[in-house]
């Protein structure tokens, strides 16, 4: 696997993590970051704002939708999954599973 392939995989995994987190309902950016970290027991997590370029790219591509909520006189951006995002999640989620399954198989001691 080349560096470019690896970067693409990391990017896809990050996108899948966000989309999977949004499957349970609309969330603010910080909630996505928090839920991904907690649901994966700290294995995955977004640091240094890396969440935002991914969120905005997914929004631009129509895979998620960003709306502005007014809560207590403040504006907060909240994201939800679109139909296109659901399809993307299914497709890319499957691809990630296949990649990680192959990785697991390689790590298994041969019998």
């Amino acid at each position: 696997m080349s560096t470019t392939d690896l970067q693409a995989l990391v990017r896809t995994v990050n996108e899948v993590l966000i989309l999977a987190s949004l499957r349970s309902g609309r969330k603010h950016g910080y909630q996505i970051a928090l839920d991904v970290e907690r649901d994966s027991a700290g294995v995955f997590g977004f640091q240094h704002g890396t969440l935002y370029p991914i969120l905005h790219r997914l929004e631009k591509n129509g895979q998620i939708e960003g709306d502005w909520d007014h809560e207590g006189g403040r504006r907060r951006k909240v994201y939800s999954l679109t139909d296109s995002g659901r399809e993307y999640l299914e497709r890319e989620g499957l691809r990630c599973r296949q990649v990680f399954a192959a990785f697991n198989d390689l790590l298994e001691p041969s019998t």
């Binding site: 240094h48 704002g49 370029p53």
Partner: peptide, 10 residues
């Protein structure tokens, strides 16, 4: 640490 973008993220 979680949310503030670095120069690279910006």
């Amino acid at each position: 640490t979680t949310l503030l973008p670095t120069e690279e993220t910006l």
